[in-house]
Design a protein around this nucleic acid. Structure first.
Lengths: 224, 224
DNA sequence: AGCAAAGGCTACCCATGAGTAGGTAAGCGG
DNA sequence: CCGCTTACCTACTCATGGGTAGCCTTTGCT
């Protein structure tokens, strides 16, 4: 069969369901991250995905379902990216350092994932906000555990636990905010971002201006 | 004229325009803060305001106009609240301390204002996001100036300015995040919140766990 | 009194966009 | 070559909600 390239521009071959679902989710994340849940239209998502609207409904369900599945996939990605970078047998500051680096690497690589998780998911009242808040809460608790561990390890007693949750919330917020800032400054590497934050929260300004600097142990200076 | 209280339950007296506008803006802020821009309906706003829908349109214009005016009013309130609490002739750490306290006092008192500014305003693409981002940027620059001033005052050179913007962004984010956290913990006073943050960013964990504590000068211990 | 202006409302229009009905075509076992 | 399933689409329905037309009512001025 020579020369049968008659089909116009190879338009929309039939693809297996799994592939289509991936494409649709990709498109959904992109569109949701740009416009938010309410302003995003299923028509635009189907358009970006290169698929007609009914496909979305037969494969992924309603708009809310779709949003939920988008959130879930991106959240899993983020958590896995961070866990992959952390070694639990290191001292607290090194754990924090590695976690932060993985986090900033992820944000740089999957900006849309980050946007949809950080900004958009909270704006849909109901289940999603609760889910995201819960996930963020777990992150805060994790950091709080680190902080308290660092505190008790050094002999600080009840006082650290008392303010641990608040400090952890502040720290997580600082990390998130710096992530947003970094979106506008792509030239700053994830290592530098993590270092800034470590210097801020581990040493504080007072030490910083005295010339003290926090360093991730004298190992290799790998900039990814 | 004795005894003419016949009008059913004193329903909706005629009020001057300025008062109605205030009521409508109050309702708008409340509804927008709860549901976000898109999910909020003009019908609900008019209902909460105790006014019919056309009034909103004749007094304050379209939904977008209304949202813009809400944002603007709340932003002005926030800025004025903070500026009222800061004295420019104090050392940097004390300025930061007073600014933070005013900020947390404001957030506690006007939760809805804070929510609408922090969460909702960004979700409406277009002019508002830009405005809010710009305002936040000014806040960050202000803090950055403080930080750099603290740095150069203590003899730290170029290095501080280099990371000043990033650190300021992180600090502002930490303050915001702690504000969100504080919404769920109303028993924590603004003074305590501000202290936590000062300890975190000014001293850092390392000093904290050594027992050092930052204090706002040995003046009166006023808890508002 | 009379009348204009300001305050206020009910009842509607209509664009947008979520969700669907029902059909076409491509692969595949027989 | 026949039918069955899977992939896929066009073209609709219909609720929601932004925005408005037109009307009534109170107040205040002459």
């Amino acid at each position: 069969m020579p020369d049968e390239d008659q089909r116009p521009p190879e338009r929309a071959r039939r693809l297996p369901r799994a592939v289509r679902e991936r494409q649709i989710l990709d498109a959904a994340v992109r569109v949701f991250s740009r416009h938010g849940y309410h302003a995003a239209s299923m028509d635009e998502i189907s358009d970006v995905a290169g698929v007609s609207k009914p496909m979305i409904y037969t494969y992924l369900g309603s708009k809310e379902d779709l949003f939920g599945k988008s959130i879930q996939r991106e959240a899993t990605r983020l958590l896995e990216a961070i866990q992959a970078g952390v070694q639990p047998d290191l001292p607290p500051d090194m754990q924090l350092w590695h976690g932060l680096r993985s986090f900033y690497r992820f944000v740089a690589e999957y900006r849309e994932s980050w946007t949809v998780l950080h900004r958009q998911a909270l704006t849909v009242g109901g289940t999603f906000a609760a889910e995201i808040t819960a996930m963020r809460g777990r992150a805060i608790e994790l950091v709080a555990a680190l902080v308290v561990s660092a505190g008790t390890r050094k002999g600080l007693g009840e006082q650290a636990e008392f303010s641990g949750a608040g400090l952890a919330a502040a720290l997580v917020g600082a990390a998130e905010s710096l992530a947003d800032w970094a979106l506008d400054h792509p030239e700053i590497s994830d290592g530098v971002l993590a270092s800034w934050l470590m210097n801020l929260v581990w040493l504080g300004f007072n030490d910083l201006v005295e010339g003290e600097v926090w360093k991730p142990l004298p190992e290799m200076n790998s900039e990814s």
